[in-house]
Structures are given as C-alpha cells and as structure tokens.
Amino acid sequence: MKILTLTINDVSHSKAVPPTMTLLDFLRDEVGLTGTKNGCDSGECGCCTVMVGGKPMLSCLMLALDAEGHEVTTIEGIAKGNDLHPVQEAMVEKGAIQCGYCTPAMVINGVHLLDNNDSPTDDEVKECISATVCRCTGYNSIERAIHSAAEKMREKQHG
C-alpha cells in the first residue's frame, strides 16, 4: 500500500491504495465519486473518461498512483453548485441523454473540446466523442448538444 494524495475537483484526498488500483476504482470505491462509470474496463468504451491535468483520459487505463501530481476533474466537478455547465444544459435540452451511462464521459469530452475551441466543426465534434460508445442516442443528439453549447458559450462570452 502507498499513500496517494490527489486533488479531485479542487478537493484534496489522501488514501492508502494498493499499486494495482486504477484511477477509476480509486474515484469510485475510495473517494465515492460514482459519476465516472466503469464500462469495459479495458479502454474500449470511453465511459470512464475523466480529466487528468486538464486533458480527457481513460481512468480504467491509468493506475491511481500514476495520477499523483495531476489535478483530476470528474463529472461531479463540472457543474458549479446547482448551475449546470452549458454542455450539460444542452445535453438535457437536446435529448442527448437516455440511459445516461456514457453521459459523464460525453460531457467531459465536450467540455474539454469547448474549452480549447469555441466554434468546433462537425468533424471536430465527431472526433471528440468518437471513442466514447453510446448505445442509446445514435450520437446525433450529442453532436447537436455540443454545437448548441458552443453557441451558448460564444453568446455568453461576446455578451
């Protein structure tokens, strides 16, 4: 066991973890942040996407100890209190959520894209969600939601 101190959603957590524990299990089982989902556990489905050092990564393909020194943002850290992030709002408005299992990962991917690119093209939106599997929506509504969120964010920025 090693002591791991990790800042997750701006809160510092210290826990003793075995070296074999993935970041995904650390988030869900040790810290209790169950918004991040475990799908395939082998890097194929994208459900477990979280931001590590500001970039989306697969938490099932990362040892918890490897995350040391990086800030981690999970879906629980995206909304500010009761105020949803524009991407989350747009996901609700555009019917981009059905069973919800991929939603946390889709939101993380969308937020990261729009943080770096306020007017993404269709291809850029498609690529950003390309490695996250959704078995309900058929992806179109998720793409529409990200475009709509981009529009909202641009409007907010330019008043």
Binding site: G43, G46, T49, V52, K55, P56, M57, L58, L61, M62, N109, E127, C128, S130, A131
Partner: peptide, 9 residues
C-alpha cells in the same frame, strides 16, 4: 493511433 483519450496519455 487509438482514440483522443488514449493519445493524451
């Protein structure tokens, strides 16, 4: 190579 999330790592 692989996916955006994997290329980040």
């Amino acid at each position: 190579v692989a996916s955006p999330q994997i290329r980040n790592r």
